[in-house]
Simulated scan of single mutants.
Amino acid sequence: MKTSGTLKIARNGYIVMAVIFCALGIFLMANPEGAMKTICVLAGALFIADGIIKIIGYFSRDFYCLAFQFDLGFGILMIAMGVLILVRREAIFKLVFVVFGLLILADALLRIQMSVEAKKFGLNLWWAILIVAVVTGVFGMLLLIDPAGGARLTVIFTGIAFLLEGILKLCVVIYTVKLRNDGNVVYEEKFTEVGH
């Protein structure tokens, strides 16, 4: 498969994953009690799918290596955690929100680093990625410390974190790479070479 074709799959996959994260986040916020019964299955499957897309993105070799630069290792981690959640969902249920928090916080921190590097390249909207990543990271941290101290509010916090994760994914892929109508790869913003 050509690099442009792989990148198109990765970009579209990122968008689909972003929409699913947002939808799952809204579902968790709207129905926290009902979501408790299915959250492990839904999240496990979602993490596996997201990990696969991340690995495809890493091997797509986008020109500036910003959007997918951390996605090989993190994609493998997402798949491993997704499998663990599905296979050991009863044993891990009490810790599942901690797992969510760790993964969301880790992704947010990587995107914060990516936004700083995007600024160096001259990407005009680097600050939008930075802001969304910071807010997403805050909610990832909230899942770790569980300030609500209750299952219902924790599920709502998880829903907000998933929604923000979806928005972050959209910001990353839309602000860094897009495809022309002919399917060829172009870039949303014009970059300038640092130091010249």
Rank of each mutant, 00 (worst) to 15 (best):
V41L: 08
A67V: 14
I56M: 13
S60H: 00
R61S: 06
L46H: 11
A45W: 10
I48F: 03
R61H: 11
F59D: 01
D50Q: 14
A45C: 15
C65F: 13
I55S: 08
C65G: 15
C40Y: 01
I48P: 08
I39E: 01
L42T: 03
F68A: 14
I56T: 14
T38C: 00
I55R: 12
I53A: 12
C40H: 07
V41D: 06
F59V: 03
F63V: 04
S60I: 00
L66R: 15
I39M: 01
V41G: 02
I39Q: 04
I53C: 14
Y58T: 06
G51V: 09
I52Y: 07
G57A: 12
F59C: 05
L66M: 13
D50Y: 13
F59G: 07
A49F: 06
F59W: 10
Y58A: 05
D62S: 10
F47W: 10
C65P: 03
G51P: 11
I39G: 00
I55V: 11
C40T: 07
I48G: 03
R61E: 09
K54Y: 13
I48T: 05
L66T: 11
Y64L: 08
F68L: 12
L46N: 08
D50I: 10
Y58W: 10
F47N: 04
C40G: 02
T38D: 00
G57V: 10
C65N: 15
A43Q: 08
I56P: 12
G51A: 09
A49T: 03
A49G: 09
A49V: 04
I56E: 09
A45N: 15
C40D: 08
A43K: 03
I55Y: 04
I53S: 11
